[in-house]
Amino acid sequence: MSIDIIGTLSIGLLWGVMAVGVYITFRILDFADLTAEGCFTLGAAVAARLITVGASPIASTLAAFAAGAAAGALTGFFHTKLRIPPLLSGILTMTGLYSINIRSMGMKPNIPLMYDNRTIMSDFAKMFSISNKIAVFCVALICVSIVIFILWWFFNTEIGYAMRATGNNENMIRALGVNTNVTKMLGLMLGNSLVAFSGALIAQFNSYSDIGMGIGTIVIGLAAVIMGEVIFSDKNSYKGLIAVVLGSISYRFIIALVLELSRLPTTDTRGISSIVLAIALALPLIRKSLIRKKPPASLEREVA
C-alpha cells in the first residue's frame, strides 16, 4: 500500500482554502450558499484563461479571487436586495455561472495549461530550484497560512465580530446597529473569493481547468468542515479555521486510502465524497446511539 503523503497533504491544503470559504458562508454566516459550486470553476477558468494569454500566475490568481468575490456579491444581491431565499440565491448564481465559466474559457469546456505556461507552483519551483512536488506543497502551505492569518485577524475586527454575530443571532446584532445586509454581502464575497482562489490554485496544480471541476464542491467543502468539527471540535472561533483545513487534509487521506484499498478509479472520488460526508454528518447520531447514557436532548430540556 502506498499513499503519496506529500501529494495528499498538498491537495488537502489546496482544497482546504475552498473548505474555509464554505465554512465562512455555511458556518460563520449560517447561509446555505451553493454559489461555491459554480465559483470554484469560475476561479479555475479565469486563472487558466489569463495564464494562457500570458498574464502572470499571481495576477491571474488574484483576478480569480476577485471574480469569486463578484459571484458572491451577486448571490448577496439576490438575497439582500431582491429578498430571494439563500438557497435559491446561490442556485441562481451557480446556474448562471455555468455560462459565464464557458465564456471565460473562450467558449470551450476546458483549457489545458501547456508545459510552457507558467503557474505559481512552477514559478516557485524555478525560483528556489526545488522539485515541482515540493513547490506545490510549499505554495499550498503558504497560501493556507496567509488565508488563515488574514481571516484570524479579520474575524477579530469590529466588522468580523459583526459578521460572526450575523450568522449567530441576526436580530440581536441588528438591534446593536449593524446592517446585516452589509455583513451578509461581505461574508458571501469573502467566502466565494476563497472558493475561486482555491479553484485557481487547483487549475494550476492540475494543469487544466474544466467546466465540470466544480461539481461536488459543496459536498467536499462541507465534508472538510464537519470532519474538522468532529475531529478537532471548536466551532465558530479562529481555531475553527485551522480545524477546517485539518478536516480537509484528513478527508483527502481518507479518500486516498479508500481509493488505494478498493482500487476504484478516481472518477469514483465524488461518490466516495458523498458517502464520507453522510457518515461525518451522521457521526453525532451514531455516537449518541453507541453511548446512550444520556436521555435525548429534548427530554433533557424538559427536565431542566
Partner: peptide
C-alpha cells in the same frame, strides 16, 4: 450571540449604533 464569548458580546454592545471598521 450564543457561540460568541461574554466579552465579545459586550464589545459588540459597546459599539451599539456606531460604525464598525477594521479596528480590533
Amino acid at each position: 450571540a450564543s457561540s460568541m464569548t461574554i466579552e465579545e458580546n459586550l464589545a459588540m454592545a459597546h459599539r451599539r449604533g456606531k460604525p464598525r471598521g477594521l479596528g480590533w
